[in-house]
Design a protein around this nucleic acid. Structure first.
Lengths: 193, 193
DNA sequence: CTAATACGCTAACGATCATTAGCCATATTA
DNA sequence: TAATATGGCTAATGATCGTTAGCGTATTAG
């Protein structure tokens, strides 16, 4: 990894942990293993690092939820749907970069309009559009009862997003939270499938 | 309002807007109309103000969701339930103190364990326990189909909480978000009532 | 081979931060 | 009425912040 990338990586870790204002340029440099002024050979300043991080958050959002339904082929029944969904969520929940990006965005969401928008996409639009696609496909195949797919996607994803946010906040309850998520998905399926 | 209260009030406004680390003691003093050092006649330091704010957030949580179902008498039908719920949500969404408390907590949720817990109560446990009570009551009276009340409360409140958070982030969409909330509640009722 | 670029370093800058010391006027209490 | 407490003020402190200047070395380009 290049120094420039390692700076971004360190900044993401620290911003997620302590927020932008709670992180000093020196702390970032420390993790990278250089002195603070050397950092300015790679970025114009602290704000520049912040913007680069938002850029990479946008890219990651595209990778996760972007353009087409990235879940592979459509689940063919309730059990398969639950299995695939839980796997994807478990990954989202534990992958360090995704997790840090989420924590970083949530803390800085009021800082400027761009972060507000990215946060909304991360927390709402992205996942919901993805599941709206999946559910619509399953409706067409008669696996899911006919309904507004966008609406159903909200009902499915909102509790999950909130519970994942709680796991970020209180990682000591990760196991129980994972069970709550599964319980919710089971309930969702029992109502709509 | 006493100076001590006005300091808390100013701090809440600034912490909600710029976060704890993004707010200086001088800014707080400016709003109150005193000089920064005078502030130390009322609080030991900045951290002390933070703790007092968390205290008052806990009190507010108790007032909003605490002990008993505070929604008054049980709604007797679907229309009444929607009306009462929308009123309560509209208040929660726009009341300045509640809104600022929410924004403050969300930004500082990773700062320490106490804030983590209060945030969880504010965002999850509080509202959900309240609606679990209401829904259970309505089940007993045969208005709502028999089900796990806690589960149903999650399905009802999670999308609402997420959408309110979005309204905090992007107030320019408040109207559309309010409509989304109503649409979701209608959908919820059409499924379970 | 030489010039230029990239990237590390130290030293130092001014700005801002939270906080303390100490002074003074007013209000409260003994 | 005297003593004390309250709550404002100015001045100043040391710490930390982000950032710049400028130097040296190694790599790259012409």
């Amino acid at each position: 990894m290049s120094t420039k990338e390692r700076i971004l990586d360190a900044a993401l870790t620290l911003f997620a942990e302590n927020g932008y204002d709670g992180t000093s340029v020196e702390q970032i440099a420390n993790i990278v293993g250089i002195k603070a002024p050397s950092l300015y050979k790679h970025y114009k300043g602290k704000e520049d690092i912040l913007n680069a991080l938002i850029d990479s958050a946008e890219v990651r959002y595209e990778e996760l939820f972007g353009s087409e339904n990235k879940i592979g082929k459509l689940p063919q029944n309730r059990e398969e749907f639950i299995k695939v969904t839980m796997e994807k969520l478990s990954f989202t929940m534990t992958d360090p970069v995704i997790r840090k990006t989420r924590m970083f965005l949530i803390q800085e969401q009021f800082r400027n309009e761009r972060i507000s928008e990215v946060t909304t996409r991360h927390q709402l639009d992205g996942i919901q559009r993805m599941y709206a696609n999946i559910l619509e496909g399953m409706m067409n195949e008669g696996i899911v009862a006919e309904d507004d797919p966008a609406m159903l996607a909200v009902e499915l994803t909102a509790p999950v997003v909130l519970l994942i946010a709680r796991a970020d906040r209180q990682p000591q309850y990760r196991k129980e939270i994972m069970e709550s998520i599964e319980k919710h998905i089971q309930h969702f399926c029992s109502v709509y499938m």
